[in-house]
Write a protein that binds this DNA or RNA. Structure first.
Length: 439
RNA sequence: CGGAGUGUGGCUCAGUCUGGUAGAGCACCGCGUUCGGGACGCGGGGGUCGCAGGUUCAAAUCCUGCCACUCCGACCA
């Protein structure tokens, strides 16, 4: 993409409403536009990141055997009355009436609807286990939206729902999601720690929140430092096998959010040197709630012995839009964002210091072609901005590599290559620079 | 929802107390000089001062009502 033809409205000054780094940087880097409290338009750069994160989550869900579908944003109130949640959910649920006075709601989650779909088609235990997921916009009318996409009212969420015949199988489904989450967050360059959690309005008895550690996290977390060193399963992990050893390894050490923190247990189960108090951003949560929904909605299947039973289920959410903010919170500096490579909106920024100069234009064109061929998705800054402004923008939008090409260096056969993370710069030949970026 | 606050060009803000017909910096457009870490000169465009009423000869400014947004607190991916 050529910057001169792109839509990247970077801001030199920080909009007054942004309090935390990720919000500030997303606005300044032209990723985001607030349209109402907690409601945002995703500008092209932000949209690219959102899609990258979405795709990583999708790949890991698919790998773990979940099946993607897409449910609507609007749901009938009657569906929610079946489980009693229409009244339980309270003012956080946005209720809408259509022209025929039908009561609808903008879905805050989809347990009820997925159970309705399940019950419409699944009749036999032979169809189990089944895990269906979708990636869809949700709406929760938060009392106080804040922190940009970290606590928006409208947000993009991946939510998966598992159905199993018995408890052991349901637990295996839970474990598959648990492992998929470890992998997905790891792929985004995040260190996510699963923590024992309360299940809240979703219900159930087994639940983990996945938190990434960042100074601006909304919740205080207490954990055993050793959790930071547990290996994340590789892409060869066999989801057909028993994953309980992995889950056990990740849940053997103390880790709790302030809501469920038990100081006495913390002291008992961890050595003083291993105790780590930090702030966490919740980026995912897993729930096991048994037959809560299938029973209430009579979503029954026939078991091997001919009896009708309510399958046991769980639900598993990942805040896709929140992750964009969370990643920035975890990875930025004074100058701007530092994208982990897998979620970077573009792989490299080529900076043309003198558009119109034949040799420089040609070198930039060559670099652009080469990087495109390598699949590095380069962004070429071919604008007439002054060099200083280009460098500032480059650091702000935080692509992994900056390839700086100007007449002065080119005369010596050199370009400047800068890695955003760490900031190391080197003067090398263009070919060598392309080689380095190519990996 | 309780408490506090803010709405003035695309952005950051001054002007409001003490009413007199709207400003600055940045951004934008044109010309020129510049060009390796946020250039400079000259010229230019752009604002129903959140909305609606009211007071007044006169309202961004005073009064009333409403709306939006932000911050602190109680709920949540």
């Amino acid at each position: 993409m050529r910057l001169s033809r792109y839509f990247l409205p970077v801001l030199r000054e920080t909009p007054a409403e942004a309090q935390i780094a990720s919000h500030r940087l997303m606005l300044r880097a032209g990723m985001l536009r607030q349209e109402a409290a907690g409601i945002y338009a995703w500008l092209p750069l932000g949209h690219r990141v959102l899609k990258k994160i979405e795709q990583i989550v999708r790949e890991e869900m698919d790998r773990a055997g979940a099946v993607e579908l897409l449910m609507p944003t609007l749901q009938l109130a009657d569906l929610w009355r079946e489980t009693g949640r229409y009244d339980d959910y309270g003012a956080e649920m946005l209720r809408i009436t259509d022209r025929n006075e039908r009561e609808l709601l903008y879905g805050p989650t989809n347990e009820d609807m997925i159970t309705e779909i399940f019950r419409a088609y699944v009749r036999s235990y032979r169809s189990l286990p089944l895990n269906l997921y979708h990636i869809q916009w949700k709406f929760r009318d938060e009392l106080r939206p804040r922190f940009g996409v970290m606590r928006g009212r409208e947000f993009l969420m991946k939510d998966a729902y598992s159905f199993d015949l018995d408890a052991a199988s349901a637990r295996a489904s839970y474990n598959r999601m648990f492992v998929a989450y470890l992998r997905a967050f790891h792929r985004m360059g995040l260190k996510a720690i699963p923590m024992k959690a309360e299940s809240g309005p979703i219900g159930g008895e087994l639940s983990h929140e996945f938190h990434i550690l960042a100074e601006t996290g909304e919740s205080a977390v207490y954990l055993d430092r050793r959790l930071l060193d547990i290996p994340v399963p590789g892409e060869d992990v066999d989801y057909e096998s028993d994953l309980s050893a992995i889950v056990e390894a990740w849940t053997a050490h103390y880790a709790a959010t302030e809501d469920v923190h038990d100081p006495a247990r913390y002291e008992r189960e961890t050595k003083a040197a291993d105790r780590l108090s930090a702030r966490g951003i919740e980026v995912g949560q897993t729930f096991y709630f048994g037959d809560k929904y299938t029973k209430a909605m009579k979503a029954l299947v026939t078991a091997p012995d001919g009896a009708e039973v309510a399958p046991l289920g769980g639900s598993y959410g990942v805040g896709i839009s929140r992750l964009v903010g969370a990643i920035i919170e975890a990875s930025h500096d004074e100058a701007g964002i530092i994208w982990p490579e897998p979620v970077a909106p573009f792989g490299a920024l080529i900076i043309n210091l003198r558009p119109g100069d034949g040799a420089v234009d040609e070198a930039c064109g060559h670099a652009y072609q080469a990087l495109t061929t390598m699949g590095r998705e380069p962004l070429l800054d071919d604008t007439e901005e002054r060099p200083g402004a280009k460098f500032a923008t480059a650091d702000l939008i935080g692509l992994p590599w900056q390839l700086i090409i100007g007449p002065r260096g080119l005369a010596q056969g050199q370009v400047e290559l800068k890695r955003r993370a760490g900031g190391e710069r080197q003067e090398v030949s263009l070919d060598r620079a392309l080689e380095v970026i190519g990996g």
